[in-house]
């Protein structure tokens, strides 16, 4: 009897440990932000200030959550009045992400294919002062700058967590859901 209870308790513990990471990823559709984004749960939504030399100052929407020592953040900056500088604004976003630490990877990222493709940049750095590893994607479309960040803190224990790349790549600008 005691063995059964222990086995049951163990099974619950294993199930409980593995469930959140795999089952809690949810796709959220943000019509007002023009993006569909996966999060490993329900993110907190707040308004923050985005301020850079090229972009200037703008009120941005920040969606964020933390789980298992990984911080997931999507920042959407409305910059419709800066379309003529949007390529530079994206480049500035990449530069700032590169400047946060020791570069590890830097590659093209693309959302949707063909003529409607949105090209951006995906990079990974080891943050200064051993604060972890951050993967950042910068994209600009629909008059918005999208900054997608997953920061794996040292406490997570697996710096190359696949959850980071899952987060930075799981998004769509196709709001109609055509694939």
């Amino acid at each position: 009897m005691r063995l059964v209870a222990m086995a049951f308790a163990s099974a619950v513990a294993v199930f409980g440990m593995s469930l959140p990471a795999s089952a809690a990823w949810v796709e959220h559709k943000y019509d007002d932000l023009g993006v569909v984004k996966e999060f490993p749960g329900e993110p907190k939504r707040e308004i923050v200030e985005y301020k850079t030399p090229v972009a200037g100052t703008a009120k941005a929407t920040r969606l964020s959550m933390s789980e298992d020592n990984i911080d997931y953040v999507l920042t959407v900056v409305p910059l419709k009045d800066k379309l003529d500088a949007s390529a530079s604004i994206m480049g500035e976003c990449v530069f700032m992400a590169e400047d946060e630490g020791e570069p590890l990877a830097n590659m093209t990222t693309r959302i949707e294919p063909g003529a409607k493709a949105v090209y951006g940049r995906l990079l990974s750095v080891d943050l200064a002062d051993k604060k972890g590893r951050r993967q950042t994607a910068c994209l600009f479309t629909k008059g918005n700058l999208y900054i997608v960040q997953a920061t794996v803190r040292p406490e997570h224990g697996q710096m190359n967590s696949p959850l980071a790349i899952r987060f930075t790549n799981s998004m769509s600008f196709n709001m109609e859901g055509e694939h």
Partner: peptide, 25 residues
């Protein structure tokens, strides 16, 4: 309105032309 993607596509095409050696801002 799509200038960021046009620049990104230009970079992608340049990367595709061979074996990458360097890539920087």
């Amino acid at each position: 309105a799509r200038s960021a993607s046009l620049m990104g596509e230009c970079v992608f095409d340049a990367e595709e032309a061979g074996t990458p050696l360097a890539n920087m801002t």
